[in-house]
Computed example of a mutant assay.
Amino acid sequence: MPDSYADLSRYYDLVMTSGYYDYDAYAQALLARIGTRRDVLELGVGTGLVADRLLALGPRDLRLTGIDHTDSMLAQARGRLGDRVTLRRKDILDMSLPSAFDAAYSIGGVWYIVEDGEQSWLSSHLMEEEDNETALANLAAAVRPGGTLLLSVQGPHRRAGRSLPGGLHYTQHVAVDAQGQHTKDYFIEDQGVVLAHQRLRFRLFPQPAADKILQRCGFHFQDRDDVLWQYTRR
């Protein structure tokens, strides 16, 4: 995967903490479902915002490992988390990790769930079904049987914007091509001057198709709520 947040990374925390995500709500929901599991893997640790809240709200013996493919984001995560979390630069398509994790989660990372009314999709930054199977198989090899995979829930991608501290402005534009593949453009502007622009592509797999992919890789649906979907590693 390319270094997909290289341009946006210097403004990432500013955007994410301005109301984009409720990190306390995600951390509390994760901890409730992680339960007594202690060896936990974050897929797409970013700048460490989720991990930081888990450490603040969770048990002292929680052992977190965070992976990301973006050097600029990992540099910020190291500054925030220090040695409290094991951070590794990994591309999930060729990732090799020991089978050492009781739980893994993705909060808007490689995968997450998009819900719109009664419909739901698995959103993936991997565009090809074959790549998703490869990546999920790599993940399954790292999660112990009986372990859990937790995916965050988000609403549909739409054009949006918000003001940021310091007089900056954030906007996102979303386009869908004939094959149903999505392109999302992020802009940080200062009085109409673009300071940063990042383009990401993702694909939405309808939930029945997504569940078949997950099942082929060893993950079976277990439960869901408004914040997280939970799969069990069989």
Rank of each mutant, 00 (worst) to 15 (best):
R216H: 14
G35S: 15
R84F: 02
M16F: 13
A210F: 04
V174R: 04
K90L: 15
L122D: 10
Y21N: 08
I107K: 00
A100C: 11
V15F: 08
V114S: 09
H157L: 15
F187C: 00
L126G: 02
A32Y: 05
T86E: 15
R233Y: 09
F187Q: 05
E118D: 15
Y12M: 07
Q181N: 11
V45I: 13
Q222L: 13
L87K: 11
A104H: 13
Q215K: 11
R162T: 05
S9D: 09
S152Q: 10
I67V: 15
H220W: 12
A135R: 08
R89Y: 13
D91Q: 12
Y231W: 15
I34E: 06
L87P: 04
A75H: 10
T17F: 01
P59L: 05
Y26H: 03
A25P: 00
S123C: 15
L8R: 09
S106G: 04
M73N: 07
L55T: 03
V15H: 02
P2H: 14
E130C: 01
I107Q: 00
L93M: 07
L214T: 05
R37Y: 08
P165T: 04
D223A: 15
S18L: 03
V153N: 13
R60N: 10
D177R: 08
D61T: 12
L136I: 01
G82K: 15
G147M: 11
D91H: 12
H169S: 11
A27M: 12
L30Y: 07
L168V: 01
I107E: 01
Q207W: 14
E42T: 02
